[in-house]
Design a binder for these strands. Structure first.
Lengths: 197, 197
DNA sequence: CAGATTCCCTAGTGACCGCTATAGAATCGT
DNA sequence: ACGATTCTATAGCGGTCACTAGGGAATCTG
């Protein structure tokens, strides 16, 4: 009774489909990716897509979660693993240069680019909150370094976090405009020269 | 015969309409701005809009020109007027903090944000070329300073230009995410600390 | 005034959007 | 085997997209 599922089994791999959907949304953004784009790319019919994922919005929500766990975590990991905020931000910027230009997926950061100019305010707001949450992570890590004396007492943690975020977002945009990994690495190194003693 | 125009005169101010169209495209982007958005905002019917501007694409092209001459020129002006590349970039970043957050118009830079995620590759390409042209302006001004000895001989002009562009684009994105003028000014000052001696 | 010219308004074009009703195909439990 | 269940495929829903045909309205020239 409670054993295996009944009825006709799904004819496609849900996780693989989610991956393909992620790459499509990543490249073209939320709004510019149509359901027929997705059904063509995933190789399934529209009803199958809706049965498996609900609707376009819910599918994108799942995509954002997968993206975060696979490509968006590197910042949080660095903040956790590195001994200082400066070391973490340095690692984040250098890794961003690599990730944003990895030919295995579309350039840049999906959270930064996928909901620019969408008529769906909800989706735009969701990604904006994710970006601002990252800024808050930066800020609290910097604040911890100020409290422990690693950074000068008069450091403006909020402004420094915003600076790091701005450079990251700029690097994402530049990668979408064709910047290479080496060029972004040079940007990262230059940006790090502004880090407080 | 060649005197004044014949026929019924246009019932709206073409330049004022272009201004309103600019603000709408600036806020929502190219694709997310529909013709009916525009006819509602401009207070004219669709046929009038098409008679005056051709089509959506041509209207946007005109908007980009107007935008460039009114808000996009500040970078080129600074590069021309300031004695060094460093002074120019400093002025550009500080002015960007003000312009990007001016409540008289939508936040950020239209050339950076208006064609993210559009299905119209032509429009996206046109704005990308504009951004890259700005980068080239930065680069050549920096190169001039290197040649004249104002900047060290081993300065990587291209990388430095990309750094300035990345910070600018990051500031634009941050302003769209709600950063205030003061916060962007702090970002600009921080960014300038990385400028070579 | 009349006729030519130009613009505006109503109403609609075909195409695509996100999404789904319906019916057939494939697998379950019994 | 057989019904219940779950998926897939066709076909199409109403709505919005960018865009325009057609006729009346307003201004010109003469």
């Amino acid at each position: 009774m409670v054993t295996g599922q009944r009825g006709r089994p799904r004819s496609f791999d849900r996780d693989a489909a989610l991956d393909k959907a992620m790459l499509t949304f990543w490249e073209h953004g939320y709004e510019a990716t149509s359901i027929s784009d997705l059904t063509r790319t995933l190789g399934i019919g529209a009803p199958s897509l809706y049965a498996a994922f609900g609707d376009k919005r819910k599918l994108f929500d799942e995509v954002v979660v997968v993206y975060g766990s696979r490509y968006g975590d590197f910042a949080a990991v660095a903040l956790r693993e590195e001994p200082t905020a400066g070391a973490a931000i340095g690692r984040i910027l250098r890794e961003a240069a690599e990730i944003y230009t990895d030919p295995a997926h579309p350039p840049g950061c999906m959270v930064i680019s996928a909901a620019a100019n969408t008529t769906s305010q909800e989706v735009a707001e969701a990604l904006r909150e994710r970006r601002n949450a990252n800024l808050a992570l930066f800020e609290s890590r910097i604040r911890a370094d100020v409290a422990s004396g690693v950074l000068p007492a008069d450091t403006d943690a909020r402004a420094l976090a915003r600076y790091a975020g701005a450079v990251l977002q700029g690097m994402s945009q530049q990668s979408r405009d064709g910047a290479t990994r080496e060029e972004l690495e040079a940007v990262a190194e230059r940006a790090l020269l502004a880090w407080p003693a």
